[in-house]
Computed example of a mutant assay.
Amino acid sequence: MNAPAASQRTDIRVQQADFDLSQELAALRAGDGRVGAVVSFVGTVRDLNEGAQVTEMELEHYPGMTEKALEDIVAQARARWPLYGVLVIHRVGPLQPLDQIVLVACSSAHRGEAFAACEFIMDYLKTDAPFWKKEQTPNGARWVDARSSDDSAKQKWANS
């Protein structure tokens, strides 16, 4: 059973600025003695994708709709697992290789719930949140297509 809504933290941000991982995780669990686990995922810009060098990646989103999609994903995770805190930060704009793109973090009493919820949120974010990626390569710009592996990752949750 989930903790009462008043004791749940949710922070969803779509922003251009980078984030400090240690500060964000400390804030997620600050002052909450119930927290026994914090699980996080950080996605970064790779310098190579589909055999081509990536010199820059630009992320675009649909303001308002993107945040709503992320809120819906977090609500689905909260309905499945007893979470105390959820943090989703997704960057937009031009990014360089090694830059942080996304942070998903979940806190709960036990690690199993936090791991599962973090993976669930990331799997759904990759398929259901309206973000578009354009990579700059030595051969010019290209839009990054959706991956069937992302759809497969999301599908596993339909059966659980």
Rank of each mutant, 00 (worst) to 15 (best):
Ala79Leu: 08
Ala30Trp: 15
Ile101Pro: 04
Val88Gly: 02
Leu87Gln: 10
Ser149Trp: 03
Gln100Tyr: 13
Phe41Asp: 08
Val14Tyr: 07
Gly93Arg: 05
Asp150Arg: 00
Lys154Cys: 07
Val144Met: 00
Gln136Arg: 02
Thr137Glu: 00
Leu28Pro: 08
Pro82Ser: 13
Gln53Asp: 04
Tyr124Leu: 15
Phe131Met: 05
Glu119Gln: 14
Asp151Ala: 14
Gln23Leu: 13
Ala116Asp: 15
Asp123Leu: 03
Trp157Leu: 02
Glu60Ser: 14
Val39Gly: 02
Met1Trp: 08
Ala129Asn: 06
Val104Phe: 09
Asp18Thr: 04
Val39Arg: 09
Asp151Phe: 15
Tyr84Val: 13
Leu83Cys: 06
Val86Glu: 03
Ala114Ile: 02
Leu48Cys: 11
Val42Leu: 10
Ile121His: 02
Val35Ala: 08
Val35Gly: 13
Glu113Gln: 14
Leu28Ile: 09
Asp99Thr: 02
Arg91Ile: 03
Gln16Val: 06
Lys134Met: 05
Gln136Val: 00
Gly31Ala: 12
Leu59His: 07
Asp32Thr: 14
Ala141Asn: 04
Leu25His: 08
Leu125Lys: 06
Trp143Phe: 02
Ala30Phe: 15
Pro138Ser: 00
Glu71Ser: 11
Val88Lys: 01
Asn159Ile: 13
Asn2Ala: 15
Ile121Asp: 02
Lys134Cys: 00
Ala117Leu: 09
Ala153Ser: 12
Ser108Gln: 07
Arg111Leu: 11
Leu21Ile: 11
Pro130His: 10
Pro97Asn: 00
Arg111Glu: 12
Met57Ala: 05
Leu103Trp: 10
Gly140Val: 00
Gln8Arg: 13
Ile12Gly: 05
Asp72Ser: 11
Pro63Lys: 11
Asp32Phe: 13
Ala30Ile: 09
Trp81Lys: 05
Arg9Thr: 12
Tyr62Gln: 06
Ala109Cys: 13
Asp150Tyr: 01
Ala69His: 06
Leu70Glu: 06
Ile12Ser: 03
Val102His: 14
His90Lys: 01
Pro4Phe: 04
Pro82Leu: 07
Ser107Tyr: 09
Pro63His: 10
Tyr84Thr: 15
Asp151Tyr: 11
Ala17Asp: 13
Trp157Arg: 01
Tyr124Ala: 15
Ser152Thr: 08
Leu83His: 10
Ala105His: 09
Arg111His: 13
Ala6Gly: 07
Gln100Thr: 14
Val45Met: 02
Gly33Tyr: 11
Phe120Gly: 06
Asp20Tyr: 09
Ala129Gly: 10
Gln76Ala: 13
Ile89His: 11
Leu25Asp: 11
Arg91Asp: 03
Met65Pro: 07
Ala153Ile: 02
Ile12Asp: 03
Ala79Glu: 14
Asp18Ala: 07
Lys126Val: 07
Lys126Ile: 09
Met57Gly: 01
Asp123Cys: 07
Phe120Asp: 05
Gln23Phe: 05
Trp132Met: 01
Ala75Ile: 05
Val144Arg: 00
His110Trp: 11
Ile73Ala: 05
Gly51His: 03
Glu67Lys: 12
Ala158Glu: 14
Asn159Ala: 14
Gly43Ser: 12
